[in-house]
Design a protein around this nucleic acid. Structure first.
Length: 465
DNA sequence: TCTGGGGTCCTAGGACCC
DNA sequence: TCTGGGGTCCTAGGACCC
């Protein structure tokens, strides 16, 4: 396959000497074969469900997205039943329940709390940690081979014992290869959860990368896979052998970096360094409704709640917002799909929930179709700036939270818990366990929610001794 | 009936200026 | 007055990630 393709794409013949291109130039090129450690929890959400409910261990468990929409995490037993991530729950529910599958609504409070504990434990084993997502982190290793392996195994068992979550560890010279090594550790039980890329490369040679479909390489998504396949590039090995310069011209510097990383040249930077403390450049809060919403009146209730949630995050990172965007859409699966979005530039940057909430509603006030069934809406806070950098002349700061409503809400949230107090529908909390169980038709459905055992006093597990 | 949510980065193209 | 070329800045949209 590759040979026939070379005739058409002579540039695919990779030079034997590694070429360093712009993508790699700014970054210190360290070829330490064990520099990057990637620790990634196995089936994280499903594993979290098992931590406080040990009866679930070994059984097929799936965790569903908001509104109990689709499957977002599966236990090993659920994977064996052939359940695929992203599948709408309603399509497989019958068969799954027949097979004894246990479904859970997503319980983000629990997952965030366990993630925090897991990351804290792991940070103690290596000099530097970059938390990449809720269930994975990169760790920087400066130890030699033997000590590195010992440390990885020790870290793994400490997390398992202390937090109850199994993690897999991949070690390699670059992040992209560490991802592959991590994947390998998950797939091959003989690795006992820790895999060094060097070992695989030595043992299997080119067959290691040849066995990995190009679609599984980190940074290669669905669209790029399709184009690459059309060019005859089907495996990770094919991609590694491409000319990086050609790839940049044909695709982008991002994919060029992927090629270089597959060759062992690190070029993906540490993102945690740049932003000491996590400061987002945009804040988005959006939800699907549990049933369609018609008319501006009801829609604006939802927009107001989302604006307040976004505002809460804005406060937390001490930012001001310069532009508020809002959008809503009908079902993309319906015959007539429509998506409406608009943004409002604020006179002055603001962190006032009243101002942001009003702006979000105004953004859509005149453009929505009063009769259309909207199934989703969202609010985006854009043009964020540091609150400390912003100073106005006295008397000119009308947009700022002059009544201190935002601060009052923040204090109330700290004291009474989130979503107890708010503007409009923002503070209504029903009697049920669902915070959003307000009687409004659009709030989220979470029918199969497990206990939030680490964040709610009233839901703490009881131990019978 | 029922199909997630929250981010980031890059690029192309338009507007503007010299 | 007209014109071309090139730089910069901004924005929308696309692609990716988990």
């Amino acid at each position: 396959m590759l040979d026939s393709m070379r005739a058409e794409h002579p540039a695919l013949d990779a030079p034997t000497v590694e070429t360093r291109t712009d993508a790699a130039q700014d970054i210190e090129v360290s070829h330490l074969p064990y520099a990057i450690v990637l620790a990634d929890a196995n089936n994280f959400f499903a594993s979290c469900e098992t931590v406080f409910n040990p009866q679930l261990a070994g059984r097929p468990v799936v965790v569903l997205s908001n509104n109990d929409g689709c499957v977002v995490s599966r236990s090993a037993a659920a994977k064996q039943l052939g359940i695929v991530n992203g599948t709408p729950w309603f399509k497989i529910r019958g068969q799954a329940e027949h097979d004894g599958v246990i479904a859970r609504s997503s319980n983000y409070e629990l997952y965030a709390s366990l993630s925090h504990r897991m990351m804290h434990v792991m940070s103690g084993f290596f000099s530097h940690q970059e938390v990449y997502s809720i269930d994975e982190c990169f760790l920087h290793n400066t130890m030699g081979r033997a000590r590195a392996e010992q440390t990885c195994r020790q870290m793994r068992s400490t997390v398992l014992r202390g937090v109850g979550i199994a993690v897999s560890v991949g070690v390699a010279p670059t992040k992209t290869l560490a991802k592959i090594a991590n994947h390998w550790a998950k797939k091959h039980p003989t690795s006992h959860g820790v895999t060094f890329w060097n070992d695989i490369a030595k043992e299997c040679g080119d067959d290691a990368l040849r066995s990995i479909p190009v679609s599984e390489v980190w940074g290669v998504g669905r669209r790029i896979t399709k184009t690459l396949m059309g060019m005859g590039i089907t495996t990770a090995l094919d991609l590694q052998r491409c000319d990086p310069v050609l790839i940049r011209h044909r695709f982008s510097v991002l994919l060029e970096r992927t090629v270089l990383e597959l060759r062992g040249t690190p070029c993906i930077e540490d993102e945690s360094d740049a932003s000491s403390g996590v400061r987002r450049t945009q804040i988005l809060c959006s939800r699907m409704f549990s049933s369609p919403v018609r008319g501006f009146e009801t829609l604006s209730q939802a927009l107001s709640v989302y604006a307040q949630q976004a505002c809460h995050r804005l406060h937390r990172q001490h930012s001001l917002c310069g532009r508020v965007a809002a959008f809503c859409s009908t079902s993309p699966f319906a015959k007539e799909y429509s998506h409406i979005g608009n943004s409002v530039i604020l006179d002055d940057p603001s962190d006032n929930p009243m101002v942001l909430s009003k702006a979000a509603c105004n953004a859509l006030r005149h453009s929505i179709d009063e009769h259309a069934p909207y199934i989703r809406a969202g609010v985006m806070l854009l043009d964020l700036s540091d609150a400390q950098d912003f100073a106005t002349f006295e008397g000119m700061d009308a947009q700022r939270d002059e009544h201190g409503i935002g601060s009052v809400l923040e204090v109330a949230a700290r004291r009474f818990g989130p979503r107890r107090v708010g503007i409009g529908y923002g503070g209504i909390r029903g009697s049920g366990r669902n915070d959003a169980d307000t009687g409004a038709t659009w709030t989220m459905r979470r029918d199969m929610l497990s206990i939030r055992g680490t964040t709610r006093w009233d839901e703490m597990p009881i131990v019978h001794a």
